[in-house]
Simulated scan of single mutants.
Amino acid sequence: MIVRIMGEGQLELADSHLSGLNRLDDELLTEMEGGDEEGFRRTLAALLDAVRSLGTPLPDDSLEPSELILPAPDATLDDVRRMLTDDGLIPGTV
Rank of each mutant, 00 (worst) to 15 (best):
M1R: 13
M1N: 14
I2G: 05
I2S: 04
V3K: 00
V3R: 00
V3I: 14
R4P: 00
I5Y: 02
M6V: 15
G7N: 09
G7A: 06
E8W: 04
E8Q: 10
E8Y: 06
G9D: 11
G9H: 08
G9C: 15
Q10W: 02
Q10A: 05
L11A: 10
E12F: 11
L13T: 09
A14R: 12
A14C: 11
D15F: 02
D15W: 03
D15Q: 06
S16T: 15
S16H: 13
H17D: 04
H17P: 02
H17W: 02
L18S: 02
L18F: 07
S19Y: 02
G20T: 04
R23S: 09
L24Q: 02
D26L: 06
E27Q: 13
E27G: 13
L28Y: 03
L29N: 07
T30L: 14
E31C: 12
E33K: 09
E33V: 15
G34M: 13
G34I: 11
G35C: 06
D36T: 09
E38D: 15
F40D: 03
F40K: 05
R41E: 10
R41D: 08
R41F: 13
T43D: 04
T43V: 15
L44M: 10
L44Y: 01
L44P: 01
A45C: 07
A45R: 14
A45G: 12
A46P: 04
L47V: 11
L47A: 07
D49R: 14
A50C: 11
A50K: 14
A50Y: 07
A50P: 05
V51L: 06
R52T: 10
R52Y: 11
T56C: 13
T56R: 11
L58D: 00
P59T: 07
P59Y: 10
D60V: 10
D60G: 12
D61P: 03
D61I: 11
L63I: 12
L63K: 08
L63R: 07
E64M: 08
E64K: 14
E64A: 09
P65V: 09
S66E: 08
S66I: 05
I69F: 09
L70M: 12
L70Q: 01
L70C: 03
P71W: 00
P71K: 00
P71I: 00
A72G: 07
D74W: 11
T76W: 05
L77T: 05
D78K: 14
D78M: 07
V80R: 05
R81T: 15
R82C: 14
M83D: 08
M83T: 08
M83K: 09
L84F: 08
L84P: 03
T85N: 05
T85D: 07
D87Y: 08
G88F: 03
G88V: 01
G88S: 05
G88K: 01
I90S: 00
I90Y: 01
I90W: 01
P91W: 02
P91V: 03
P91R: 10
P91L: 09
T93N: 08
